[in-house]
Amino acid sequence: MPENNLFHLAFPVDDLQKAREFYGGVLECEEGRSSECWINFNLYGHQIVTHLAESGAGVKASNNVDADHVPVPHFGIVLPMAEWKALADRLKAKGVEFVIEPKIRFEGEIGEQATMFFLDPSGNALEFKGFADLSTVFAK
């Protein structure tokens, strides 16, 4: 995929002000356009849009992945390892409660990655992954 392609994700939240505080304040995403029923954010160069929907947000299930119960659905981003570590440290300092604490998954195997999961105020699960070498993201 060319590097200039951007990812777009629209998802439900039950309180736009809490979403603004979380995505803008905690995750430090730049806010873009907005209305009374949605807010557009820049998440590491990708567009995420929080849409006001009083039902429909949150975790629906979980799957077992490397001994963790991974929340489903979830979304997030893959970062170079140094950026992932900086984000994990910043989130810990801000008191973010993790569903899955920052850790290394598949250690020593193909696909080794750092991962962390946490919820936004509406209960949407986010996963941030870190790779020492981004060219191995899809390695088998």
Rank of each mutant, 00 (worst) to 15 (best):
N42S: 02
L43Y: 00
L43G: 00
Y44P: 05
Y44I: 10
Y44E: 12
Y44F: 12
G45E: 13
H46P: 06
H46M: 04
H46F: 01
H46E: 05
Q47K: 08
I48V: 03
I48P: 00
V49I: 06
V49E: 04
T50R: 08
T50D: 04
T50F: 05
H51T: 11
L52D: 01
L52W: 02
L52R: 05
L52K: 02
E54Q: 13
E54R: 11
E54V: 07
E54S: 08
E54K: 14
S55D: 14
S55E: 15
G56T: 08
G56C: 07
G56S: 07
G56I: 09
A57G: 04
A57N: 05
G58V: 03
G58I: 01
G58W: 01
G58C: 02
G58L: 02
V59I: 15
K60C: 07
A61M: 12
A61Q: 10
A61Y: 09
S62E: 10
S62Y: 11
S62K: 07
S62R: 11
N63F: 15
N63P: 08
N63R: 15
N64C: 09
N64H: 05
V65F: 04
V65N: 11
V65Y: 06
D66I: 13
D66N: 14
D66L: 11
D66V: 14
A67T: 15
A67L: 14
A67Y: 13
A67R: 15
A67F: 14
D68A: 13
D68R: 14
D68F: 09
H69Y: 06
V70L: 12
V70C: 05
P71S: 09
P71A: 09
P71K: 11
V72F: 03
V72P: 05
V72R: 07
P73Y: 00
P73I: 00
P73D: 03
H74Y: 00
F75P: 02
F75D: 03
F75I: 06
F75G: 03
F75S: 04
G76P: 03
G76Q: 03
G76Y: 01
I77W: 02
I77P: 04
I77N: 09
I77A: 13
V78P: 05
V78H: 10
V78D: 14
L79W: 00
L79I: 07
P80I: 10
P80Q: 14
M81T: 14
A82S: 08
A82M: 07
A82Q: 10
A82K: 07
A82W: 01
A82R: 08
E83V: 10
E83Q: 11
E83H: 05
W84T: 08
W84L: 03
W84F: 09
K85N: 11
K85W: 02
K85Y: 03
K85R: 09
A86T: 12
A86W: 01
A86L: 07
A86N: 12
A86I: 07
A88Q: 01
A88G: 01
A88S: 03
A88D: 02
